[in-house]
Amino acid sequence: MNRFWSVLFLLVPVLGIASVLMAMYGVAPLESAWLPKSLSQAGDTIDQLFNGIHLLSAFILAGTVFTIGWALWRFSDRGDSNEKALYVTHNTKLEITWTVIPALILIFLAFFQMKSWAENKMDRPTVTVDGVTDFKPPMVMVKAKRFGWEFYYAGDDGVVETEDDIFVENLLVLPAGEEIVLQMESRDVIHSFYVPELRLKQDIVPGMTQFVWFNAREEKEIEIMCTELCGWGHYMMKAKLNFVSRAQFDAWIEEQKSAYSPEFKNEAEPAAFLRESNKSFSAKLSNVARPLLKLKIN
């Protein structure tokens, strides 16, 4: 019976590592389970980190749990000897070894990943116009609301939040192969902008403005997910994200200009504007009881 338990514990690292490798190298049945194919350079770097740290972890998992299983196999009391267990209380050299080696590995990991983080979240793209370097202006203003996404494209003036913005709901069309900056704000509660293919995620916090940037290398239709609980309809808060060629993009934008006349009036009368924009939306929500909120209004 002791052998049975040692085998059970030995199976943990074996199955664990096998499945990690299967997911990493795309072997059935886990071929599509892990992350979808990366669409950007920054995503590739994150993937390398992701796979590298997982391989390292798998190696450590194998070492430790295998030792546990082996100790169970080797040292189980089978009642065939009267010898007592080894009387050892501590070993300072061992303690130092298994503190220092992991410490070195972790310090290496800590420094190694800083660049990727900076690229993704800190080094906002810049442009130089007439010798003046400034942040690259966002192409689209993303307004997250319960339970959908509003996209305001910078119109002819190239600036978002102006009269000539082009409004599209739940569909984001962007040119592939270009560095794109999005500005993001929330109308109500916290939302989170998640595009797995771009390895991109950013919470959108009411009262704060966030910027994200990315550069997709191919044309593809993917999805934007909301990954911060925002209420009962959180699950259906999705939008389409289409990467198209520059020519297709320009044609599409022209189409939108004629199709839809935006009325984005920023900062004019915020509270009134918000009430207006939420009106159609609230009709859908009327079946949800909000006794406390009613109390506040009255």
Binding site: F50, I53, S57, L61, V65, L109, N120, K121
Partner: peptide, 24 residues
């Protein structure tokens, strides 16, 4: 043995660039 798995996946997600993907 289970704590080893939980602890190691903790190291994976302590790396902020990786956490971008796996957060939430």
């Amino acid at each position: 043995s289970m704590f080893v798995i939980g602890g190691l996946s903790g190291i994976v997600m302590s790396a902020p660039p990786v956490d971008i993907v796996i957060h939430d």
